[in-house]
């Protein structure tokens, strides 16, 4: 009966391991959702692609932010929700590819609770090809397929992602660790050592970033252009409104973009403006477009006492600046095109 014992020990080990994993993920999920600073973990960098689609369906927000790490760092629901009186969700993820940005925005637009989807347009730059995504991105967790139909068996995929995936384990562990280190009365803003989105750009960071991003340009290749067009088409009859913005990258790095490829930058902006104008001329659900990629009070901000009040580095703005952007969008109210 040696083989029976083997199967027993093997299956026992697997069953115990899976049970422990599910138990941890369940407990961690409950802890994060009910913690007063729980939503701030949406600004953490880790395994966000895996777990954020699950959180999106659990939280049922009205306002969703989609984009790269600029968005992930810059919009903290803990700060935004009381200020604007909405329930918001940060759907940002590091190095978001144009395809992922389109798909995440489609996912957000398809949620019944969502009324507005704010998308940072830097996610639609570069030369990415069709369908390109980072390893932990998974179509099956999203509400709609790339063609816009409902994803088959999504409930099952969300369940397995939430309870059984390594991505969930990583993100939950990271989030619980971050929240558990907050003392009574502390918020994420008090602990920039844990919540990096709240750290301040220093002179040294600024110089390092200028060197690191010295060859950076902001242009829109054919692949991202196609993805952007597909996103607009998806939003044409959506119940939720699409709000697009050119991100408020610091003036110092904007100068680099212009040095590198001024025509490409202007072509990117013009392509977006034209596409949005066409969209608004024919679609019942109009899109709003805001341009913060210029010289404004935020992007021209100088360091005070050796640190920035609004930036983590030259492209990542801090959550208070994110709130300011949203207030600017509300003040402007109508599309700028």
């Amino acid at each position: 009966m040696k083989q029976t014992r083997y199967a027993f020990w093997f299956l026992g080990t697997v069953a115990l391991g899976i049970a422990a994993l599910m138990g941890f993920n369940w407990a961690a999920g409950a802890y994060i959702l009910h913690h007063r600073a729980g939503a701030s973990v949406q600004t953490l960098s880790g395994f966000e692609r895996a777990l954020k689609p699950v959180w999106l369906t659990q939280i049922r927000p009205e306002l969703v932010f989609v984009g790269s790490s600029r968005v992930r760092d810059g919009f903290d629901p803990v700060l935004i929700d009381p200020a604007l009186g909405v329930k918001s969700f940060n759907y940002g993820a590091s190095s978001m590819t144009p395809y992922e940005a389109r798909r995440f925005a489609q996912d957000a637009l398809a949620q019944p609770s969502v009324k507005q989807v704010v998308v940072s347009l830097d996610a639609f730059t570069g030369h990415g090809g069709p369908g390109e995504a980072l390893p932990s991105f998974d179509e099956t967790r999203l509400a709609v397929t790339p063609e816009g139909g409902p994803t088959p068996r999504r409930g099952l995929w969300l369940f397995t992602t939430r309870f059984l995936s390594g991505g969930a384990l990583g993100m939950n562990a990271l989030s619980v660790y971050a929240l558990a280190r907050l003392k009574d009365g502390e918020s994420a803003a008090d602990r920039p050592d844990i919540f990096n989105a709240y750290s301040h750009m220093s002179e040294a960071v600024m110089q390092r970033d200028l060197t690191y991003r010295r060859a950076r340009t902001l242009t829109m290749g054919p692949g991202p252009r196609r993805e952007f067009a597909t996103l607009l088409a998806s939003a044409c009859n959506a119940q939720a409104r699409l709000i697009l913005f050119f991100p408020p990258d610091h003036a110092a790095i904007q100068a680099r973009y212009r040095e590198g490829d001024a025509k490409g930058l202007e072509a990117f902006k013009q392509t977006v403006r034209d596409a949005v104008a066409r969209h608004n001329a024919r679609c019942p659900s109009r899109a709003a477009l805001f341009d913060f990629l210029d010289a404004n009070s935020l992007t021209t901000e100088a360091l005070r006492d050796g640190r920035s009040a609004s930036y983590v580095d030259l492209v990542h703005f801090r959550p208070p600046a994110g709130l300011w952007l949203l207030q600017q969008m509300r003040l402007k109210g109508e599309p700028s095109n």
Binding site: R5, F10, L21, T160, G167
Partner: peptide
Amino acid sequence: RLQAFAYGLLCIIAVLALSN
């Protein structure tokens, strides 16, 4: 028993990597 435990652990790690 030792190999059952080792392969069981390998199975858990492999399942964890099934994120997508």
